[in-house]
Design a protein around this nucleic acid. Structure first.
Lengths: 243, 243
DNA sequence: GGTCAAACTTGACCCAGATCAAAGAAGCCA
DNA sequence: TGGCTTCTTTGATCTGGGTCAAGTTTGACC
């Protein structure tokens, strides 16, 4: 990892202060973190970590979007994680990761050297408690994703994906879904996310558009015109029950 | 959860003592766990936990095999986790889980009430440290599984699955792979695990058999006759490199 | 040892989505 | 403004694995 080191932002003014691995820390604990943390930035498209490369840091995403990707011997790839601000990268207790991390947009990371961080983890229950939570949340997400990859049709996959974008977009408010969305991912990246080909993604998006469920302003920006239809299509029984 | 409560086994004699969430604990910490733990047993086929049901316990698997399953509104199901001895069930900090837990064989659990366990977690870094590790391992496994579900062919899925059985079977020794295997899962459960139908599983197993890669003694017991072929088929580049 | 149900195998057919191919948009920079 | 490249759409065709439908094997229980 030889990305430019940036001037640190004070923890107290950090945009992910309330959600990241440090969110439960008190002022004293933050002071310790403040001393060992180090901001680094990456450009869109940069490889952040390589699979198998020794990894001397763990990090939180401060801003931007990154993906975790896995590859088969013949080059087929599958995205296995989507990292958003406050998400955590790294494996305390192990120096290698089993996937590549790629910046989709420009990304800023808050990095800690792995070994000091591990010591801190043992000494600071509030950090390890939060890390358990974050990891279990990620595991829940991974399991939803497994259901999608294993059993959903292309149409259901796309509907589920857009539903997820709406949810993510709405977290601030929590009540009114924000229905105007921007795709940070290309068709190919979406395909990679959903276990499809880019042609199928394109066709399914066109279908939803021609059915009047989505309205595109340009290729990367659209509005969800019929969220209920989207929910019905996604195949999740939780949504079906809510209708 | 109203399964029969069994007589507890002493932690010091517990078969999962060295791998479960308690594995790092010292004698004093074990003494505390000893007081609040409670063995429970389930029969093969029993539902251990239901999705959405309030869950007042967390637990470690002491013996047996259980699965985590998710279901779509029309009944399609996908297995999203396979629990073996020393694996952990539950979500500190939340009282519901997002999937059903089913006993595949007879199962014994070592249960803790959730709230006391959560307090213990904060007070005992050695437990939370181990829980982070276990959860991150599970996340790694989930991501391998996502690659399988999203991108592998039926043949590759079956080969990967059997490879995994061999690995799991060999942990004791660590060097010589144990090539004689027993399937605890039915064809339907395997299909459920791999995102296939039971017919496809049956056909692929028959194919591997007729190619001389597997030799069946009966429907549930077979020998891996050609592990290298299996590795080559699985599509993982790690194995390809090793050849 | 006969009956029944559950688990498994095998075949015939079909379709969702992959693959192959070509032709628009859109951005970029010289 | 024109010529790149990258992204996207749309069409035509092919195929892996799903679906439907018999059978066969196995084991459990009377």
């Amino acid at each position: 990892m030889n990305a430019p080191v940036l001037a640190n932002v004070k923890c107290s003014e950090c945009p992910i202060r309330h959600r990241a691995v440090c969110s439960r820390c008190d002022t004293d604990e933050l002071a310790v973190l403040e001393q060992i943390k180090m901001y680094r930035s990456f450009n869109a498209g940069d490889q952040v970590f390589w699979r198998g490369e020794p990894m001397d840091y763990v990090a939180s995403i401060v801003s931007g979007v990154a993906t975790l990707g896995k590859t088969l011997e013949d080059g087929r790839t599958q995205m296995v994680g989507l990292l958003l601000p406050s998400d955590f990268i790294g494996r305390p207790g192990r120096s290698e990761i089993e996937f590549d991390v790629t910046a989709v947009t420009d990304v800023t990371l808050c990095c800690f050297e792995r070994q000091p961080f591990e010591r801190l983890l043992l000494a600071t229950p509030r950090i390890s408690q939060r890390l358990v939570e974050i990891t279990l949340d990620e595991l829940d997400a991974a399991r939803d994703w497994m259901l999608l990859l294993g059993r959903k049709t292309a149409r259901e996959k796309i509907a589920t994906f857009i539903k997820m974008l709406v949810q993510r977009n709405s977290v601030d408010d929590g009540i009114t879904p924000a229905l105007t969305l921007a795709l940070t991912l290309t068709r190919e990246e979406i395909a990679n996310y959903l276990g499809l080909t880019l042609e199928t993604v394109s066709r399914q998006l066109s279908a939803l558009k021609s059915e009047g469920i989505l309205t595109f302003s340009d290729r990367r920006h659209f509005r969800v015109t019929d969220l209920d239809a989207l929910r019905a299509i996604s195949g999740d029984d939780r949504d079906a029950a809510a209708l």
